[in-house]
Design a protein around this nucleic acid. Structure first.
Lengths: 137, 137
DNA sequence: TCAATTTATGATATTAACATGATAAAGACA
DNA sequence: TGTCTTTATCATGTTAATATCATAAATTGA
């Protein structure tokens, strides 16, 4: 569903949010804990910082932190730098123009599905996922 | 959402179903009409034939036809040889084990979304898409 | 039979995603 | 200041998806 890269980003942000004291978290720690290749994760975190999702600091006490409170951080913000979710889901048959007026064969049935997916990413916050995790079903 | 290959497969099957008289359709015609690389499409159609979705015949009057009536052909049958939809959508965070008992942080909210997608492919038939296309919204 | 036409198949090429490795730049602190 | 630790960046390698090319095998019909 998500690219490997976007999935790494999401897992990394959740890891940071779970430890949302004020300390910074180093790449090495996250890579080890999440079993994500260290140098690859490093670049993902850098991109998240450029996207305004994280803050990064260098040097001895450096590392990464959330730049946004978990209850205001939507999944779409985390995923967007890596996957163009809305774009990809608009037309199941890949037509550049596909909407209610110029619809592909799948449009009328697919749009509700695509909207369900888009809404999930647009509205779900990191804090909501954490609260679910705290009280497993 | 779908891989390029699965999207080609779906478009090709819809093209065949729209012309579901008894004639066979040649790869060249479909490739041209759908603007899909001819040799690539050829292999996709071959895989659909091996999967039981199409029948193929060689020689002068050869080509491809649906092997299943459009109203009994589900989208999942067309897509399955190329994309493992259910697998990919099970866990948003990519955990090998993720279910109601051993849930990832996203599980409880994601499962409904994933189920919506899976149900769409599992239940929607080619005939349903065609009837929509005939009566545009 | 044989030529024409079609799908089937194997080899190869291209591209983007994923990943690694080495070095530069910045910050902390003795 | 100088050293250590961290992120930032650049160069390169690997892999799978996508695509192309050439040839084989099957079918039709003159």
């Amino acid at each position: 569903m998500l690219s490997q890269t976007a999935e790494y980003a999401l897992r990394a942000v959740l890891y940071l949010a779970e430890r949302a004291d004020d300390r910074t978290v180093r790449v090495g720690e996250m890579a080890q804990a999440l079993r994500i290749p260290r140098n690859y994760l490093s670049k993902i975190l850098h991109r998240l910082a450029r996207a305004g999702v994280l803050t990064s600091t260098r040097g001895k006490t450096g590392g990464f932190q959330l730049a946004v409170p978990a209850d205001r951080l939507r999944l779409s913000e985390i995923v967007a730098p890596f996957d163009r979710i809305d774009e990809r889901r608009r037309c199941l048959l890949g037509r550049p123009q596909c909407n209610d007026r110029t619809a592909c064969a799948a449009h009328s049935r697919w749009k509700d599905v695509a909207d369900t997916v888009a809404t999930f990413f647009r509205e779900t916050t990191v804090a909501e996922l954490l609260s679910d995790a705290a009280v497993p079903a």
